[in-house]
Amino acid sequence: MLPTPDTSHVPFNTVYEPAEDSYLFLDTLSSPAESAWLATRFATTPAPLITEVGCGSGVVLGFATANAQSIFGRRDVLAIGTDVNLHACLATRETVQRAVQTQQKEEATSQQETTTSLYLDSLTADLCRPLRPGSVDVLLFNPPYVPTPDLPPIPSNDQTYGPSKPSFETESYLLSLTYAGGADGMETTNRLLELVPDVLADHGVAYVLLCAQNKPAQVRESILAWPGEWQAEIVGRSGMQAGWEKLVILRIWRST
């Protein structure tokens, strides 16, 4: 078992607290089959850029960055997190930096080669909009996937979510953004999927978490129909509900 990053500093009144979906991400990325696939995929590339969209507490990004040697077979990944919520951006900075430092201390005591993987930045942004086309090697997305009658408005910079103490309304709004997915729970995920072909590097890969109500089989079919040689496969599963997995993780990549 690889260590789970410490998130004791994260303000869970405005930031999503790591839950079953977050842990499914950790288990999936570190499973022997997935790690082997990733290590092969990134065996000879320049330092990979790992981007978590909607990074929240930063637990997934911190895990992937600090344990890069076990997951990607290399110690030189670069990490960027994006989130619409400044509190999440600040939390992620702390989580990823701490996780990498903890890993480096561990390596120093056991006299292993040191991890150089580096947290670059958190960006306050909608999805991955400010990232350059073709720049992301590994995209991670644990979306707001719960079906809801309405979708909360996409945050704009007209409001500020600064470090000052948020009002109760602001707290409720920010937390609603972490789970409310609108129709089929897919409205935000669909917006992200539209950006994937553009933002991923040629050899890039995206991991997107879906729940049963998101209709994962249909989502997979629609990706296979994208122009170009796109592949999609379920590589992580958790919880059974009426014979179906409650949560799955879909791996999306070009078969080049």
Partner: peptide
């Protein structure tokens, strides 16, 4: 601000 760039757009551009 405080080392973090804000790429949220004004509401008329969202």
């Amino acid at each position: 601000k405080e080392g973090i760039a804000n790429f949220l757009l004004p509401s008329h551009l969202v």
